[in-house]
Amino acid sequence: MIPAIGLALGILIGLLLQPAVPVWLQPYLPIAVIAALDAVFGAVRAILDGIFSDKVFVVSFLSNVVVAAFIVFLGDKLGVGSQLSTGVVVVLGVRIFSNVASIRRHLFDA
């Protein structure tokens, strides 16, 4: 419940402040957001599996974000930024889907 409130609060703050993304962050933010979503869904799944740990969540969240941003950064430097971004999004998307499928199985047994 607390994280859900936090998410809503973040969205509200974002809507109120209308932030502009700094230029140096612009290529990385979308990937970082996807990675964070992956961590969140992974955490929910872990809760349902009964193996959730706050520490693991925080670490996985941060590492996901950092690694995703780093991969994009590296891809940009190597000249394959857009392809690598696509790859990261695909991998994270697959993971999010599998996590959501697991959560669904837990909650709705279907």
Binding site: L9, G14, V33
Partner: peptide
């Protein structure tokens, strides 16, 4: 850890909105 998780959630929501606007 719970507080940290909430902070991360806030950051995530904020980032989502920022990215959508961007």
């Amino acid at each position: 850890s719970n507080l940290l998780a909430m902070l991360l959630a806030v950051a995530l929501g904020f980032a989502i909105i920022a990215q959508v606007r961007q």
